[in-house]
């Protein structure tokens, strides 16, 4: 802290003494900014003129503060948090996913001849949400977001995480009722998410999701419905394979992140 100015100096400063040179004024001001005691002394040395000016400024400021709306300050409401992580456009799709899962669980309970439907569609559960998370026709503000530094991978991963945060508990809940292995529900679902992102770097996330849904439906769901048997892919012993595939796909997808820096032609 700078040295305290003398009371005489403060008095000259308070009265606006013209003989006080500019460097001295600066020194006093710098000191006043950090010393409450000297500010108190300054308040004691003010003239009547200064006090009327201060009163007038205070009255004007009070009036302006009363007239303008309150700034929001730092309060962060839940709605703002929700807006950021779970953009409203995702909600209908997540609702649909939950509905499909519930229907599958219900069918599994009512219709005992069928193989476990929930297990069959579990890998596809996050894909509609992921596809929507990065699609220009679904997000009204895509052009605004595309020009921000958070665009691309950051936004995509954030929204994918939001989708998974919803889908995984939903799967766990449905899975707990049917008594299947939880790992067999969740690992394929994560593997398919990573695969969508990876394929998305080549053909766009939207097409990748549609393609994977189609392939899985034709290659796995349809045959197992026809034969009424759970395929070997989803049997208990394939859990380590799914874990390995998930890790590999995630690693490769992360290596290819650069492709998400811009919206590509096919998004």
């Amino acid at each position: 802290m700078t040295t305290h100015p003398t009371l005489a100096q403060i008095g000259r400063y308070a009265t606006g003494d013209p003989t006080l040179d500019e460097p001295s004024v600066w020194t006093i001001e710098v000191h006043l900014e950090e010393c409450a005691d000297c500010r108190a002394r300054l308040a004691g040395s003010t003239t009547a003129d200064t006090r009327t000016t201060l009163d007038r400024v205070a009255a004007v400021l009070d009036r302006e503060i009363a007239a303008t709306p309150m700034p929001a300050g730092r309060s962060r409401s839940w709605s703002a948090l929700g807006n950021r992580w779970l953009v409203g456009t995702l909600l209908p799709w997540l609702g649909m996913t939950a509905g499909v899962l519930a229907c599958a669980a219900l069918l599994g309970v009512l219709w005992t001849g069928l193989p476990e439907l929930v297990l069959l569609i579990a890998p596809l559960a996050p894909l509609p949400g992921v596809a929507v998370a990065w699609h220009r026709r679904v997000d009204p503000a895509w052009e605004l977001i595309a020009a921000t530094p958070a665009a691309g991978l950051t936004t995509l991963l954030r929204r994918t995480a939001a989708v998974l945060a919803f889908v995984i508990p939903a799967l766990a809940l449905v899975g707990a009722g049917t008594g299947t292995s939880l790992a067999l529900m969740l690992l394929p679902c994560l593997a398919f998410t990573a695969a969508t992102l990876l394929l998305g770097t080549l053909v766009g996330v939207h097409r990748a999701a549609i393609g994977l849904i189609a392939i899985w439906t034709l290659a796995v769901i349809a045959p197992s419905l026809a034969t009424a048997r759970i395929p070997v892919l989803l049997a208990g012993e394939s859990t380590p394979t799914w874990a390995l595939v998930t890790v590999l796909l995630t690693a490769v997808a992360l290596l290819r992140i650069n492709a998400f820096r811009r919206l590509s032609q096919h998004d």
């Binding site: 409203g88 503000a141 052009e143 605004l144 530094p149």
Partner: peptide, 16 residues
């Protein structure tokens, strides 16, 4: 780095 110092108003700006 460029996008951090960029402001952009598109012609048709979508919003929530």
């Amino acid at each position: 780095p460029v996008r951090r110092t960029l402001g952009y108003l598109p012609q048709h700006f979508g919003y929530y």
